[in-house]
């Protein structure tokens, strides 16, 4: 008998709306899931998920209130996996600009979250993605697979230059109304998706499953 040990996940509770959805979708992967804002629990988990909906500034305030930046930074220093979803991805960049208001992000990656330049915004609905090479989350999946997006802002330029001995990050792109933006990032222990895997049916479940297996 081989004992099967389920990874323990924490969904970081910092007041953002869709925690229950994320937790329920992650439970489907067979992982143990706890929704909490507890600092030590979030540090100790095998994987930390940072969801996020609504305004950038509001999410940053919520994260700051639970020392979310510190939690994420410490985890990454120890190569402990973190997954950001939607605004939970956007806050990983330097800054967000919404309605002309600039908010400071966590600066794990350089870059700016800005308004999509498309005829119809929000970008709302099921879209395909262009996976980066060596993607763990998307490799080998049907290119017609669609994921659920709902956002008005996005990272439209990837600015992190990687050279030397470092493994370059895997960038997955998507397009809406002629505008191209970052749909997902896989960068060592830090991963993120602009779409909502927890709301993307079986396609989203597959992405979460792959992330959990990689822990």
């Amino acid at each position: 008998m081989v004992a099967v040990v389920s990874p323990k996940l924490v969904v970081l509770d910092y007041g953002s709306g869709n925690l229950a959805s994320a937790a329920r979708a992650l439970l489907r992967t067979g992982a143990e899931v706890e929704v909490t804002s507890d600092f030590d629990a979030a540090l100790a988990a095998d994987g930390l998920v940072v969801p996020g909906v609504g305004a950038y500034e509001a999410c940053m305030q919520g994260l700051n209130a639970v020392r979310g930046g510190r939690i994420i930074g410490r985890r990454l220093a120890g190569s402990r996996p973190v997954l950001g979803i939607c605004v939970g991805m956007q806050v990983l960049f330097d800054r967000g600009v919404e309605h002309g208001v600039e908010s400071t992000g966590l600066s794990e990656w350089p870059g700016t979250v800005e308004r999509l330049q498309a005829p119809i915004v929000p970008h709302m609905g099921w879209n395909t993605v262009q996976p980066g090479e060596r993607s763990v989350l998307f490799d080998g999946l049907d290119p017609e697979t669609r994921y659920y997006f709902v956002h008005s802002y996005a990272v439209r330029r990837w600015e992190l230059e990687v050279s030397g001995p470092f493994t370059p990050p895997v960038i997955t792109w998507a397009e809406h109304g002629g505008d191209r933006f970052v749909a997902a990032v896989e960068n060592g222990p830090l991963s993120a998706t602009q779409f909502h895997p927890e709301k993307s049916g079986d396609a989203g479940a597959e992405v979460l499953q792959r992330w959990v297996r990689s822990l």
Binding site: H123, M124, G125, W126, N127, Q130, F149, E175, H176, G177
Partner: peptide, 8 residues
């Protein structure tokens, strides 16, 4: 590559 028409 474009967003799908949603059927609801």
């Amino acid at each position: 590559m474009t967003v799908a028409v949603r059927v609801i």
